[in-house]
Computed example of a mutant assay.
Amino acid sequence: MDFQAIIVLILFLAAAGYISWRTWKAFDRRNSGGCAKGCGCASDKAPVMKV
């Protein structure tokens, strides 16, 4: 492969990885909070027990 094809392949894989990560975060319910931003600010998370 020539140099330009390698750069295009790396950029394509980075973009595909980013889109996959954003899709995963959109459907991941573990860290979703009560607000629409998904920042995790809601109190419905599992409580952490301190000993």
Results as ranks from 00 to 15, higher is better:
residue 37 K to E: 15
residue 19 I to S: 08
residue 46 A to G: 04
residue 51 V to Q: 08
residue 3 F to D: 12
residue 33 G to T: 05
residue 18 Y to P: 00
residue 16 A to C: 11
residue 24 W to A: 15
residue 6 I to G: 00
residue 31 N to S: 11
residue 40 G to H: 00
residue 2 D to I: 08
residue 36 A to H: 08
residue 19 I to N: 02
residue 39 C to R: 05
residue 30 R to T: 15
residue 38 G to T: 03
residue 26 A to I: 01
residue 19 I to D: 02
residue 50 K to F: 15
residue 15 A to N: 06
residue 31 N to W: 05
residue 7 I to Y: 00
residue 11 L to R: 12
residue 36 A to T: 08
residue 18 Y to F: 13
residue 48 V to N: 09
residue 28 D to Y: 13
residue 39 C to Q: 09
residue 50 K to G: 12
residue 19 I to R: 01
residue 25 K to F: 03
residue 13 L to C: 05
residue 11 L to Q: 07
residue 41 C to N: 06
residue 32 S to D: 04
residue 40 G to I: 02
residue 33 G to K: 02
residue 40 G to W: 01
residue 6 I to W: 00
residue 30 R to E: 15
residue 25 K to H: 11
residue 15 A to Y: 10
residue 29 R to F: 02
residue 4 Q to I: 09
residue 18 Y to M: 13
residue 4 Q to S: 13
residue 19 I to M: 06
residue 16 A to D: 03
residue 26 A to L: 08
residue 32 S to F: 08
residue 44 D to M: 11
residue 10 I to C: 02
residue 41 C to K: 09
residue 24 W to L: 14
residue 11 L to N: 13
residue 45 K to G: 11
residue 7 I to A: 12
residue 43 S to V: 07
residue 46 A to F: 09
residue 29 R to I: 10
residue 27 F to M: 04
residue 30 R to N: 12
residue 41 C to G: 13
residue 17 G to K: 04
residue 37 K to V: 14
residue 50 K to Q: 13
residue 45 K to S: 05
residue 51 V to Y: 03
residue 18 Y to Q: 08
residue 4 Q to M: 13
residue 5 A to N: 11
residue 11 L to H: 02
residue 13 L to F: 03
residue 16 A to P: 01
residue 16 A to M: 12
residue 5 A to D: 10
residue 1 M to L: 09
residue 37 K to C: 14
residue 15 A to S: 13
residue 43 S to N: 09
residue 43 S to W: 08
residue 29 R to Y: 01
residue 51 V to M: 11
